[in-house]
Every structure is written in structure tokens, then in C-alpha cells.
Design a protein around this nucleic acid. Sequence first.
DNA 1: CATGAATGAGTGTTCATTCAT
DNA 2: GATGAATGAACACTCATTCAT
Lengths: 217, 217, 217, 217
Amino acid sequence: MGEKVRQKEPGKTGPKRRRRRKEARPAELIEAGLAEFAEKGFAATRMEDIAARADVVKGTIYLYFDNKEALFKEAVRSRIEPTITDVQGMVDSYDGDTESLLRLVLRTLYDKLVDNDVRVILRIMISEGARFPELVEFYHANTVKIGKGMLTTILRRGIERGEFRADLPVNEPIVVVGPAIAAAIWRLTFDPYDPLDIEAYAAAHVDIVLNGLLSRR
Amino acid sequence: MGEKVRQKEPGKTGPKRRRRRKEARPAELIEAGLAEFAEKGFAATRMEDIAARADVVKGTIYLYFDNKEALFKEAVRSRIEPTITDVQGMVDSYDGDTESLLRLVLRTLYDKLVDNDVRVILRIMISEGARFPELVEFYHANTVKIGKGMLTTILRRGIERGEFRADLPVNEPIVVVGPAIAAAIWRLTFDPYDPLDIEAYAAAHVDIVLNGLLSRR
Amino acid sequence: MGEKVRQKEPGKTGPKRRRRRKEARPAELIEAGLAEFAEKGFAATRMEDIAARADVVKGTIYLYFDNKEALFKEAVRSRIEPTITDVQGMVDSYDGDTESLLRLVLRTLYDKLVDNDVRVILRIMISEGARFPELVEFYHANTVKIGKGMLTTILRRGIERGEFRADLPVNEPIVVVGPAIAAAIWRLTFDPYDPLDIEAYAAAHVDIVLNGLLSRR
Amino acid sequence: MGEKVRQKEPGKTGPKRRRRRKEARPAELIEAGLAEFAEKGFAATRMEDIAARADVVKGTIYLYFDNKEALFKEAVRSRIEPTITDVQGMVDSYDGDTESLLRLVLRTLYDKLVDNDVRVILRIMISEGARFPELVEFYHANTVKIGKGMLTTILRRGIERGEFRADLPVNEPIVVVGPAIAAAIWRLTFDPYDPLDIEAYAAAHVDIVLNGLLSRR
DNA sequence: CATGAATGAGTGTTCATTCAT
DNA sequence: GATGAATGAACACTCATTCAT
């Protein structure tokens, strides 16, 4: 009888759990949305799944966000903002040798890279960048460009202090962090089939970038 | 022939051509599909758009592929297969010094990276990998793993011949090509806002990886 | 309330009412579905038509049923269930002569046969049985088999009490109700061209089955 | 590697089996169509399946029939036509006693009932009658009405010759064959779950219809 | 504020039918 | 005549969004 009439468990009708903190709602939805978007991409993510993850119903989302796209953008933006800023100061006020400074910066980068959020933003940029160019621009302006500038500063500092080779290609500082970006991509894709030993990899990165491959003549 | 627009009642409804392309169709559809999937991802791509790009109607696709997923998988697979194999031989038979070999391999990598197809496969792996793990596994097994092995071989060769430092971290060869992967990602995302000078970047990559950052003591 | 036609901008697009009928909806949809399925068969019935008959839109059906097949099965099942049970008791507790009992049972059968629902289930069994064998099995087990058993009981009772011929073929009780089944089929098919006088037919059925054709020797 | 590109077995391209007799084509298609329609109904039958059953391709059907509906109607009609006519003569020229005549007619009916074609036409009438009333009318006019008339003739003959009860309800002759119709329906539906012993059933039918249920007083 | 039933605009897929070969 | 590639009009089903409660 009634093989499968979906009927949301009748009897559960009572007005039970009124939401805890109303203040937290948008943040919870952003959290839930980001998780879903990162996992499935914009198009494949269902509002219903976001709602379920935030433990509300679909309609509730529309009390806080105009539509799916608005939630997506806010979610991504909210995660981009606090990313680089904290590293900024580190460079300005550092007074040790530049090699140590670069090691510290790379260390920080790997720690962030392992952190889910940043990796996930990277995936979203790659996946959805074509459809949301403002987000890419925003991410670039607020994070990537700043980071790139920082690296240039570090390279120049090293050269000026005679610690780094004078003929370094300072205009292409991304090369220096390239292996870390590659590691982030690897973890997003091939890790299940060929797991990356982050510690060993990070050490190899620092070793090769600092010392190069060639034997000392 | 077969390309002619029907001409009866000129000025009427329009160019309703029926091309007969049995042999060519699957390849054309794969091409069109790959372009759309790469641009928009699996979920956001409409069969109708793929069809339009291949200049057929939606239903025609189903003459050649069971469904959207089948087309997607075949398209991706068809692009993965011919990727690495040609480089393989280069390494085995090379008899110059290892630095030159590595330069050659990196050069080839950058040329491929600029090539649309490979970059595009990378984007698909990152975007859709979670939903199509078989594809990631396939790509890893047929391309990435082989490439990684090649790099290890090259590093070992350099060490054995005394050309490379004896204490190189040969177990993390991805570090060596990391900057190139980062460049591919960059081109997929930030290039419109901050274009990459591939030549300069590639040169910087080779320079830094081979020589490192530090000044010779 | 809930039945009111929205009135803003009178003369505009029309009566777009949103009724909230959580409780009643499944039953309404089953009713509408059964009517359509019985008329056109499973394949030829459009979800949109079912929806229209229930005064909702197509998507609404999927709030209550997984798919067309699920709605079909539930609709058929829901109509099969309450069919025979009421007759069951009649036989067990009857204490008049068996001829009267049989007349009563046949009378009930004709009344049910005229009843749209049962006839319609019969049509569905014949039309769709091949594609939905579980339904046929279910109908047989819950209705036909029970009815058949009842008839056997009646025949035996008549024989035991000396009312019926001792040499009756009690193993083929369907023969006794066969003319009623034929009448149901007739009404489903030829009635428009050659209408059946149910009363006269039922009387003839009872007459012939009880007395036979042959003149008393 | 081409997981599932459908590609009709390349190499089988040669112009092999040119159809045997062109004359037979329409008949073969009608045969194939009838079989499919009977099994699945009009809507659920695919032209492709009919074609496959007749060992031609889909397009070929349209050389002989305007469309699906035309094929359906012709198929049904072609099977209706030769049905009753042969029995007609039997009645006119019979000179034995009427009980034997009726036995003979019922025997013939059961033989036909077992015969796939007639049962199958019955199923089609029940399933598709609502959508193809002309066919029902045609079937009724050419088969059912004639048969009904024959039965009336037989009943009258029996009464006139004093063989049958004088007060038989001659206006409802369908009652007499009702059990046979019920048997046909049974075989179309419940036979897999509760098989009918046709011989025993037919004997019971004849027995009960001729002698009735009541014990001779 | 929150709910969740209902909507309606798609999108993937099927299939009768056409037509160049 | 026969083929089978291609078409295009449906149709089942999904899901972002709305809105009465």
C-alpha cells in the first residue's frame, strides 16, 4: 500500500526548533553554499542542497539572498577577503635574512594551501571564472596581485642585500611559488590516486627554488 | 556537395540543409562538446548548444552517443589519449647533457600548455573531477603518472652523470614542472587581468629551477 | 480562502490561483491519473493532462510521486485494494438457500461492473498487464483469486445442501461469472455501437446459468 | 578508447540481402506491426521495433504505409476480416440437433480463442478502442454483430425444434458465449499466475450453459 | 521570520517522419 | 525500391523562484 508517496513524515508538524541565532543565518548559508559550490560548481549545485546543509528550507535562502547567483558571489567574496592581508604585514616588518623570510612565506602558503578554503576558491576560480569574470577580477585584485607584489618585494630585498643572485628574473615572481600552486591543483584532483606528501613536497620546493638543480661547479 | 543549401522556393523559410556526415559526425560532435564543456562545465552545457556548434540539431547527437555523460566522457578521453606518448621517446633516446634534455622537455611542456586542448583538459579535471573520478583516474594513469616517471628518470640521469646535485629530492619531481602548471592555471584564469608573458615566464622558470635563487657563495 | 482568484490588475493574465492542498493532493492526483490512464493507457497519457485534470501544473505531481510509473502503480493499487473485501463476509455469514446467495453475489458483481472504477481496472490490466506484471499479480492475488475461491465455496455449499447438481465442475467456477466479465468487456468496447441492456443481460445470465439451455425432459 | 560510440558494425556495409519478395513486404510489415501493437499497444510501440521484427529499416515502412496510424489500422483490419465468415456457413447448412450445433460452435470459438490472433484483436479493441472508434465499429459490424446474430439463430432453432427451453432470453445471446470471452481475457492477463485448463474450462462451460446449475427437481 | 506547497521555464531524451543517396 | 542519417516536435522530469500561511 502506498509504495512511495513522499510525505515528509507527518506528525513532525509542530513548530519545533526555532532557529538559534538569527544573526548567524547569512553566514551559515554562505558557509553551506560555498561548500556545495566548491564541490559541484555553480550550475550543478541545487539550492535545496545548500538549504539542507544549513538546516533550513529552500525558501529561507531567499530571505537573505536575492537569488542563487547573489549567494554564490557573496560566498566567494566573503572567502576571498580575509586571505592575503595577514601576510602583508609579515613582509613589511621582517628584519631577518631574506632566505628565512621566503621560507616563512612559502611555509605560510603551504599551510593555507592545505587549508580547504583557499584551495576551494582556486577551484571555483578555475571552474566558474569564465561565467563570473567580476569574481576573478576581484580575487586577482585583492589577493593574487598583492601576493605577486609581495614576492617581487622579497626578491628585490634579497638581491639588494646580496643574498640572491643579482640577475634573477624579478618580473616573473610567480615562478617562485609555482610549485605550491601546482600542489594545490594536485590535491584538488590527483590526490586520491597518487597522494602528495605535502611536507616532503614543500621541502623539495624550497630546496630546488633556493638551490636549483645544478651541482655547484 | 552535401553542403548545398536547398534552393526551392527562394526567400522562404531558410537554409535547412541535411548534411550526411556519418564518418565525420562523432568527431565533430566530440570537438563541439569538448569546447562547450571546457567553457561551461558539464552541468551548465546544453546539448542544444553542442548541437548548434556542430551545426546539427539536438536529436542528432543521440544517434552517436547514448547521453550527455557518454559524450562528455568520450570527448575528454579522446583528448587525453594522444597527449604524452610523443614525449616518451625523446627521453629514452636522448644522448646530450641532462640540462639540455630538461630544457627541451620544459620547452615542450610550455608549447603544449599554450595549446588549447591540454589546458582545457586540465580545467575539466579540476572542475568536474569530483563528479567523474574515472576520468581523473584515466588522465592520471595515462598522462600524469607517465610524465612524473619521466621527470624522475631525468633527475636520476642528471645525478648519475654528476650534472645535478646528488642530494636532489627525486621523489618530488612535480616541483620541477610546478611553475609550468601554475602558468597553465594562470592562463585559464587571470590572464585577462594580468597577462602572462609566456616566453619570459618560461625562461625564468628554467633559470630558477636550474640555478636556484641564492647567489653563489 | 485558498480558492480565491488573485485580483490584482483585473483583466490581466487570468486566474492563477495557488491552492494549498497538502492532504488532498495525492488523492486528487491519483484520481486524475487513474482517469487518464484508463482512458488512454500508460504510454499515451501525458503528465500534463493528469496535472490539468487535477488543476495543478505538471511539476506539482513530482512533489508527491517519483515519476509517471510510480503514480500509475499507486493509482492502480489504490483502486484495487478496497474491491473484494466487502463481499467476503456476505458469503461466510449467509444462511439462506444457495440459489439466493448466488443471485446476490451476481447482482453485486453487476453493480460493481457498472461502477466505473472496476471496469476501468479491468481495462488497465488487459492493456498494460504485459508491461506491469506486478500489478497483474497484485490484482490477481487480492481480488481475482479471492473471488474465485468464494465462487468455489458457493458451488460446494449448493452441492452439499442438495441444491445444485452433484456433478458440477467446481474447479472451473469462473464459468459461472463468465457472462458478467463478458458484459464488462462489452461495455468497455462495443457499447457505443450496440448498447447492452444490463438489467436484461444480468437476468438472462442468472437464468441460463441456473437453469441451463436445455428443456426439461 | 571509444567506450560506446554506436556505429552499426562497420564492415557490414556491402549491399547484401536484397529483400526476398517485394510482394510480401506489406504483409510482413502488417504481421510485425500487429505483433508489436498487440503486445505493447499503439502508443508504446516504436516504428523501429516493427521494422526490426520485419527485418527492414524504419524508413522502409513509409514506402508502404502513410504513417503509424495507417499501419495500425490496416494491420487490425486485415486480421478482423477473415474471422467469422467461415463459421457462418456452418450454421446455415447444419442439419443435426441444435445441442450438437451449439457444441460445435463453442468448440470452434475456443479453438479460435486459443489462437493468438483473435485474442490479440480483442486486447487491441479493449486497449485502443477509445482512440480508434472506427476500428471498434468495424470489428463490431464485421465480426461481433454477425456472431451475435448467429447465436440468436441457433437459440431460436433450438426453441423451435423443442430442444431448448421455450422461455430462453434469446435477446441476450452473448450470455451463452460469455464464459468463452472471459476465458480469452483470462489468458491475456492472469494466465501466468493462475493458468487456465482450457479443455476442462470449455467442458464446464458447455455443461453449465446447457444444463444449468440447479439439480433436476 | 520561516515554511513548504506550488509554479513555470527550462533541459535531456525519444521517436515518428523526411529525404539525399 | 531501400537505406539510414537527420530532423523537429513532443514529453518526462528538474529546479530556481514565489507566495500564502
